[in-house]
Simulated scan of single mutants.
Amino acid sequence: MHIQYLDKIRKHNPLIHNITNLVSANFTANGLLALGASPMMAESPDEMAELAALSGALVLNLGTPSDEKVAAMLNAGAAANRANVPIVLDPVAVAASALRRNTVSKLAQNMQFSAIRGNAGELAYLAGVDWQAKGVDAGSGSADLAQIAQTVAQKLNCVAILSGEVDYIADGKQFISLHNGTTLFPKVTASGCLLSAVVGAFLAVAPRENVFQAAAEAVAVYTVAGELAAQDLSPTQSGTFAWKLLDTLAAVSAEQVAQLVHLQQGN
């Protein structure tokens, strides 16, 4: 895999507007800074149109929804679409409550996403596939994960990223699977939320016709960085892993990622 957008992020420092949750905001902001992007965490519905004009990407995270936050997401999404700013949706625990299900439905009806990033349980719900999930956990099921990603991409006309032990990136016509990462990722709160924001950073510097490639590169960079950060750590050192992940995101090179990424092509 040729990694062409990592250095562009570091050169251009794109502003990534995140409407995210209280658990992930700090970690996400620090992760974007480490990567080379510029984070903004703004939630007032009244400033969304102005911020869209400044942003390279918009990341909508459903982790802690509220009426004001949903209103901000709707305003921000509409403004981003008008400004041709890519939107990444992270449908956190979408199946857990009627509020979350209705919010995602409303967002999908009122804006066009460039990408959706979630775990198996979240994307299975969006695909209409039977799956056993609890809250933010990925849960379990017997459906084909690559097909789940393809179905979400086809239904919502975007790139779908299903992250887990193996990561699947699909655009409805093609998919790839990436086999990097570490078992420490699920032990760090907001590691998935940060990945969604990293996807936003890569989309911010890529041509709009290259969303699939940019999303794949984002996942590759993130999971390889996690793999490198986890070297020599025990399964109980999740706290150490969290700060080492930030350090590695700042230091990892495109050449390292290209050398270490394990990719399989699908169709």
Score class of each variant (00 low, 15 high):
G121L: 10
K134H: 04
A146K: 02
T151D: 03
Q154M: 13
E122L: 07
K187C: 06
L184K: 14
S140C: 04
Q154F: 03
K134E: 10
A127R: 12
A133Q: 02
I169H: 02
G172P: 03
L184F: 15
A160T: 12
A146N: 07
V129I: 14
A146Q: 02
S163H: 11
Y125E: 07
V152C: 04
L156E: 06
V159S: 03
S140A: 11
L126G: 10
S177C: 07
K134L: 06
G121M: 02
L184A: 14
S163A: 06
T182P: 08
T182I: 14
V159I: 15
A138D: 12
V136H: 11
D144Q: 02
L123W: 10
T151G: 01
L156H: 15
V166H: 03
V166S: 03
A143G: 08
C158A: 11
E165G: 12
Q132W: 00
Q132T: 14
K173L: 13
Q154V: 08
G121R: 01
A170H: 05
N180M: 09
Q150I: 15
S163R: 00
I161M: 03
Y125V: 06
Y125F: 15
G135Q: 09
F175C: 00
W131Y: 11
G141R: 07
G139M: 11
A138G: 12
D167M: 13
A133V: 04
I169N: 01
Y168W: 09
A143E: 10
A170G: 06
D167W: 14
D144G: 06
V152T: 14
L178E: 02
T182Q: 00
V129L: 00
A160R: 09
K155D: 06
